[in-house]
Amino acid sequence: MTIEVRNIIKRFGGFTALDNVDLRVETGELLALLGPSGSGKTTLLRIIAGLDWPDAGSVSFDGEDALARGAGERHVGFVFQHYALFRHMSVFENVAFGLRVQPRAIRKSEAQIKARVKDLLDLVQLDWLADRYPSQLSGGQRQRIALARALAIEPRILLLDEPFGALDAKVRKELRKWLRTLHEEIHVTSIFVTHDQEEALEVANRVVVMDKGKIEQIGSPGDVYEEPATAFVHGFIGESIVLPVEIRDGRVRLGDRELNLDSRDARPGPSKLFIRRHDLAVGPSGAGALEGAVKHVRAFGPTQRADILLSAVGEGTLIEIDAPRDRDLKPGDIVSLQPRRYRIFAEGA
């Protein structure tokens, strides 16, 4: 099932939640909508599900207009952020709900419903909880039951809103892996919303980065991390050092210092220099584009982390870098920093 979203606009009062969004999701994909809160990702998911309606634009499933159908007729499985399990029903009845509300003509027999629910509970490995009530389950169990309930109607599309948002870190990691395995097993076109970049990069085949109601970049996890298309994506995914620079005559200037960096055809004017924390080579004074004094060194794991006060930027800018453990750094050292990789984005891009 492919999903095609075109020119979607959605406003809530004076707030534009989605501003002309286009997106195409291929059959069998596991896609992540990634963005900060207020970026419109949940609104987009709810519009695809039919729980919200756009002010303009179109949504089609396999070329067929989805907006002509209500949420119940779209065969979309939706997993809510807080699960929204029916609190007065047992786990079994929760999962069976979608089967029981089918029109009488196509409704399965009681025995068929029982068998199907059992299969689904087996799939989420929680068959032993069938008689419990949602309030008796842990967060991770509720999440899996919510998923089983959504799968009961044999959805053509599976939508998950912050599926791991309300879980603690350990359960979250387990469920992530589990969700990916499950997706490989059932292979239904799936979209999940998250504000956690690690989650998006680790689970999804493709990541859609959103900000302020617009799509900033669509790409594989590798692409969005290695080749961020905009300043926002660079800043949002992975940890970046951002320095205010100016491009003049093809040269990169930081404060009153000209940096020994290729401007790579960046437009003249105020810009931002983005460097990943681990992409700075530390050398002796005078050997790199940037200079600074080491203020603090914290060593743990395979790297050490150092705070360096850059000279040449007004009052001085403190940046945090990752350096290999074997590199000898002491507070008070004056060092040079040479970016191995960097990107320049014009101000406001």
Binding site: A49, G50, L51, G70, A71, G72, E73, V76, G77, F78, F80, H82, A84, L85, F86, R87, F97, G98, V101, Q102, R149, A150, A152, I153
Partner: peptide
């Protein structure tokens, strides 16, 4: 209204949602 939304997305009609959820 999340439980109602869940019911609707699972295919329940308005009356079913009211009575069952």
């Amino acid at each position: 209204s999340q439980e109602e939304e869940a019911a609707i997305s699972l295919g329940a009609r308005g009356w079913q949602t009211f009575v069952k959820v």
